[in-house]
């Protein structure tokens, strides 16, 4: 076990038809940006989608150089100074109580966070 945090891979679309070749395609479309915004849970305006489509295209082109040197024989580095098996004593310590946790909640009922409907109409 390596006790370091790895960013989560976002599941789902979009898929790259050239995935096996590790080619970088910078054909960013507004539809893709709209989809990414959905995955990232940000309600972008149409104006934001338009400017991000343009910027993301430029950025992706600029960062594409990484794939040219990332050959199969180079191992990845996910963590600059890796530590393995970071354990602590299995004792309860430094726990915030419910009241402390809820003080900054936008809405709560005294013991739980309160949110609006979890299921949408389509579900």
């Amino acid at each position: 076990m390596i006790a370091t945090s790895h960013p989560l891979r976002t599941p789902g679309e979009p898929t790259n038809p050239h995935r096996d070749k590790l080619e970088i395609m910078s054909d960013i479309t507004a539809e893709q940006v709209r989809h990414l915004a959905g995955l990232a849970r940000i309600d972008l305006s149409e104006a934001e989608i338009a400017s991000l489509t343009l910027e993301l295209g430029q950025i992706v082109e600029a960062v594409a150089s990484v794939s040219s040197v990332a050959t199969a024989d180079v191992p990845i580095t996910s963590h600059p100074i890796p530590l393995v098996n970071v354990y602590r004593e299995d004792v309860v310590a430094d726990v915030l109580d419910t009241a402390q946790v809820l003080t900054q909640a936008p809405e709560h009922d005294g013991s739980r966070f309160k949110v609006s409907a979890i299921l949408g109409e389509e579900q």
């Binding site: 976002t10 790259n16 590790l22």
Partner: peptide, 15 residues
Amino acid sequence: LSAGYYDAYYGSAQK
């Protein structure tokens, strides 16, 4: 980090 792009971008950057 999207499926299909992960290796080309994040993976390559880590290399």
